[in-house]
Simulated scan of single mutants.
Amino acid sequence: MTDVRVGRTDLFVPRIGLGTAALGNFQQAISDADAVAVVDRAIARAVRYLDTAPLYGHGLAESRVGQAVAKVSRDGLIISTKVGRLLREDAPRDETQYYDGVPFYRDVPAVGPVWDFSYDGIRRSVEESLKRTGLDRFDVLLLHDPDQHLEAAASTGYAALRDLRAEGLVQAIGAGMNNSAPLAELVRSCDLDVVLLAGRYTLLDQSSLSDLLPACERRGVSVVIGGVFNSGVLVDPAPGASFDYIPAGDAVVAKAAAIRDVCRPYDVPLAAAALRFPLAHPRVCTVLVGPRTVDEFEMDLALFDADIPAELWADLRRAGLLDPDVPTPE
Rank of each mutant, 00 (worst) to 15 (best):
residue 314 A to D: 11
residue 210 S to H: 11
residue 259 I to K: 14
residue 247 P to I: 10
residue 245 Y to V: 09
residue 277 F to M: 14
residue 310 A to R: 14
residue 319 A to G: 03
residue 213 L to H: 05
residue 314 A to S: 10
residue 293 T to V: 00
residue 223 V to Q: 07
residue 268 V to S: 11
residue 311 E to L: 10
residue 271 A to T: 07
residue 281 H to L: 09
residue 205 D to M: 05
residue 199 G to D: 04
residue 271 A to N: 13
residue 295 D to W: 01
residue 301 L to F: 00
residue 298 E to P: 10
residue 289 V to E: 00
residue 244 D to I: 07
residue 249 G to H: 11
residue 225 I to L: 13
residue 311 E to A: 05
residue 297 F to K: 00
residue 247 P to A: 06
residue 316 L to C: 13
residue 274 A to Y: 11
residue 275 L to E: 04
residue 246 I to P: 14
residue 226 G to C: 03
residue 284 V to P: 11
residue 301 L to W: 00
residue 266 Y to P: 12
residue 235 V to H: 01
residue 216 C to P: 01
residue 246 I to V: 14
residue 207 S to A: 14
residue 278 P to E: 12
residue 238 A to H: 08
residue 260 R to M: 10
residue 197 L to S: 08
residue 240 G to Y: 10
residue 303 L to M: 04
residue 277 F to Y: 08
residue 213 L to V: 04
residue 218 R to Y: 09
residue 206 Q to W: 08
residue 248 A to R: 03
residue 283 R to L: 02
residue 242 S to V: 03
residue 248 A to W: 05
residue 280 A to Y: 14
residue 262 V to H: 05
residue 291 P to H: 01
residue 292 R to V: 00
residue 267 D to R: 12
residue 272 A to L: 15
residue 206 Q to N: 11
residue 299 M to Y: 01
residue 265 P to R: 03
residue 230 N to C: 12
residue 240 G to H: 06
residue 269 P to L: 03
residue 232 G to H: 03
residue 220 G to K: 15
residue 265 P to H: 09
residue 280 A to R: 13
residue 252 V to N: 10
residue 230 N to E: 05
residue 308 I to C: 09
residue 231 S to P: 02
residue 230 N to M: 03
residue 286 T to R: 04
residue 312 L to I: 05
residue 253 V to G: 03
residue 206 Q to I: 13
residue 263 C to H: 04
residue 257 A to P: 08
residue 305 D to K: 02
residue 198 A to H: 12
residue 264 R to N: 06
residue 218 R to S: 15
residue 268 V to R: 08
residue 276 R to G: 07
residue 215 A to T: 02
residue 285 C to Q: 14
residue 256 A to F: 09
residue 272 A to V: 13
residue 316 L to G: 12
residue 301 L to N: 01
residue 281 H to W: 06
residue 303 L to Y: 13
residue 212 L to K: 13
residue 319 A to T: 02
residue 272 A to Y: 12
residue 314 A to M: 13
residue 308 I to M: 14
residue 240 G to V: 10
residue 299 M to S: 04
residue 251 A to N: 02
